[in-house]
Amino acid sequence: MELRQLQYFVQVAKLQHVTKAAEALHVAQSAVSRQIHRLEEELGVRLFMQKGRNVQLTPIGQLFLRRAEAILSDLDRSVMEIQEFLDPEVGEIRLGFPHSLGIHLVPQAVAAFRKLHPNVKFRFRQGMFASLIRDVIEAEVDLAFISPYPDKNENVSGEVVLTEELFAILPESHPLALENSIRLIDLKDENFVLFNSGYSLRMLVVDACKEAGFTPKIAFESEETDTIRGLVAAGMGVSLLPEMALFQTSSMMPASVKVTEPHVTRTIGLIRRAGEKKPAMVVQMFHSFLLEFFKNQYKTR
């Protein structure tokens, strides 16, 4: 079976006329008839039946048409993907990231990249630490921002692009809200508003509190940075959030205070599949751009 036979078959099926199909394909009518006949012989079935001057699909022809169209569609998509792979200016980048980076960092980086390459498309996927690792390994995304950087996972490779400080967030009416800095132990009697289980920021805060000498009392849990900020601002508790999660995005914003003893930070990494030798050119270009972007825009430690 030849690709040309499928193309001729689909065209005849759509137009229900051999001559019109030949004209649309810019070939002789005899060539179309010959290829359709060979296709029917190879399949051992009749795909068309005559209906006046037109032709009409047989029931088995209707079934075969769906399959043939799917094959040609997949082929067209493959050709397009190859063209995009080779041309970084028209490709697509699949980028994963945790929710906390979607407020400021990811939009800022993507916007800066698209100023230079406006035709590049992006497909985003947000997730938690484990799901982002899985998405990278299973090739659901090309690159992913992740925190903390998974330096012991052999299935991914990458680099730390940013080390970010975490700040205590308090209701504006809190007695410590106007301090320049506080020790984490100062919050041992407070209710904490934290991310749900499975989020890396939750474990980071819990571990920091234990290092300070206490286990935090978790009063509220959420999956959204905005919700945590809002609950703290409303006086429901305290929390720790990264600096980039504290940009003004609503009318209800908590006070933020530097934390000492311990100094709490998180690493942000950029990861990809380990051992991948030839990612699409647009992905290579974006990866190089991001490394330079963080080098110029942020302090990388």
Rank of each mutant, 00 (worst) to 15 (best):
E92G: 09
H117W: 11
R46L: 14
S33L: 11
A112P: 02
E81K: 06
Q56L: 07
V45F: 05
H37E: 15
E23L: 12
F64H: 10
R53L: 12
H37V: 05
A111E: 15
H99V: 07
L116D: 06
F113Q: 05
Q56D: 11
Q126H: 03
R125W: 04
V45R: 01
P107E: 07
A70T: 14
I36E: 04
E23T: 08
E42G: 14
I93C: 00
E92Q: 14
V79R: 02
Q56F: 08
F113V: 07
R77Q: 15
A70C: 03
L105P: 03
V45Y: 01
G52A: 04
M128T: 02
R114E: 10
E23P: 04
V45A: 02
V27H: 10
A24C: 04
H117F: 13
A70R: 15
L72I: 05
A28C: 06
F97C: 04
P88D: 06
R114A: 02
F64M: 14
F124P: 02
L101N: 11
D74L: 12
R123K: 12
R125S: 11
L116I: 10
P98S: 09
A21I: 07
A28M: 08
A22P: 13
L95W: 00
I82D: 06
L105H: 12
L25T: 05
A28E: 13
A130M: 14
D74S: 07
G44V: 04
L116V: 03
L95Y: 00
D74C: 01
P59Y: 04
L25E: 07
R66W: 02
R34I: 08
A68G: 08
V45Q: 01
K115P: 00
F64S: 10
A109M: 14
D87N: 15
L39A: 07
A70M: 14
R67A: 08
V106A: 14
F113A: 07
E23D: 11
S73R: 08
R67P: 00
I71S: 04
V90N: 15
T58R: 12
H37N: 13
V79K: 05
I103M: 14
A70E: 15
P107D: 11
R53M: 12
V45E: 02
Q83W: 01
I71H: 03
P59G: 04
A21D: 10
S78K: 14
R114M: 08
P98R: 13
P59S: 05
G91P: 09
E84P: 01
L75V: 07
R46M: 14
N119V: 02
A130I: 05
Q83A: 11
F85E: 00
G44I: 05
L86R: 15
I93A: 01
F64Y: 15
S73M: 09
L63T: 05
L116H: 05
D76K: 15
Q35G: 11
S30I: 06
A111K: 12
R46S: 15
G52E: 06
H26D: 09
A111G: 12
R38K: 06
F64P: 03
P118C: 08
R67T: 08
P98F: 01
